[in-house]
């Protein structure tokens, strides 16, 4: 059970939003939506304990995360963010071993994750020799290996081809079914609709809206936030690409 209490965040000098309060429980998938720069990634970093909040608190099972050591947080939370640098030539397997080391995952767990993300053939390759999509799969595998109760995913489907996007979304659902709490930043409304139980909408002007996925994923709510015309609803919600042609 995670409780976010009146959380206010800034990035640099810019206040992103103030006093976000919400709760999420194990087995739930929370999707964070919003335009660029609204603070979605910063929110994930704050939940991971990697970004200091201006005020407010994040509690997990009643324990304030601010009171936890880095080591304790690493047991609790697995974070997937930007692709790590490749200058020093770590291999895919070494990358997963470093992730596994933070918890008590075994070599067998690593093999399972590699297999699941179809990385067995690339296990000995250095990260720098992979495509962005392959590196992204390695990052998702690294999160899988961690076996933490809370997963924080920052655009997990970025760089992935369609098949791996689908696999990734299935994986999110599966991890939630296994009792993990998943927060994920997503940009694709259909992806959001496919996995979300709850949606956190950041409007980029400091406004926050939290609600059930079905209620949140509607053209009326999202169109003004993103500044595009939308049609349909739920899993069929999609932008209207031909708007200008039709107007003409």
């Amino acid at each position: 059970m995670m409780q976010i209490q009146q959380l206010s965040l800034s990035r640099g000098d810019k206040r992103l939003f103030a006093e976000l309060s919400m709760q999420a429980k194990a087995g739930e998938v929370v999707v964070i939506l919003g335009p660029n720069g609204a603070g979605k990634s910063t929110l994930l970093l704050a939940l991971a304990g990697l970004h200091a909040a201006d005020s407010g608190d994040v509690r997990y099972h009643g324990t304030s995360m601010a009171a936890c050591s880095k080591h304790e947080l690493a047991q609790l939370i697995a974070w997937q963010g930007e692709l790590p640098p490749t200058e020093f030539g770590l291999t895919v397997r070494q990358r997963l071993e470093l992730a596994a080391n933070a918890t008590s995952a075994t070599a067998a767990d690593i093999d399972v994750a590699l297999t699941h993300m179809q990385l067995q053939a690339l296990a000995g390759r250095s990260l720098g020799a992979l495509s962005s999509g392959e590196r992204q799969r390695a990052e998702i595998a690294a999160v899988m290996v961690r076996d933490c109760p809370v997963l924080l995913l920052d655009e997990p489907t970025a760089h992935l081809d369609m098949r791996h996007q689908v696999d990734c979304l299935k994986l999110i659902r599966r991890e939630a079914r296994h009792g993990r709490l998943v927060f994920s930043v997503l940009h694709d409304l259909q992806h959001a609709a496919a996995v979300a139980d709850t949606v956190v909408l950041l409007d980029g002007k400091g406004g926050i809206c939290v609600g059930k996925a079905l209620e949140m994923l509607t053209a009326e709510r999202l169109a003004p936030v993103f500044g595009v015309s939308l049609q349909g609803s739920g899993r069929d919600l999609r932008p209207l690409y031909r708007e200008y042609d039709e107007e003409a």
Binding site: L45, A48, L50, S69, K70, L73, G81
Partner: peptide, 20 residues
């Protein structure tokens, strides 16, 4: 050395893996 290895992934990743 283990912390150094994690630092190869960048500071954020290292911190997320429990490194101060």
């Amino acid at each position: 050395s283990l912390s150094l290895d994690k630092l190869l992934l960048g500071e954020k990743h290292a911190e997320a893996l429990g490194v101060d």
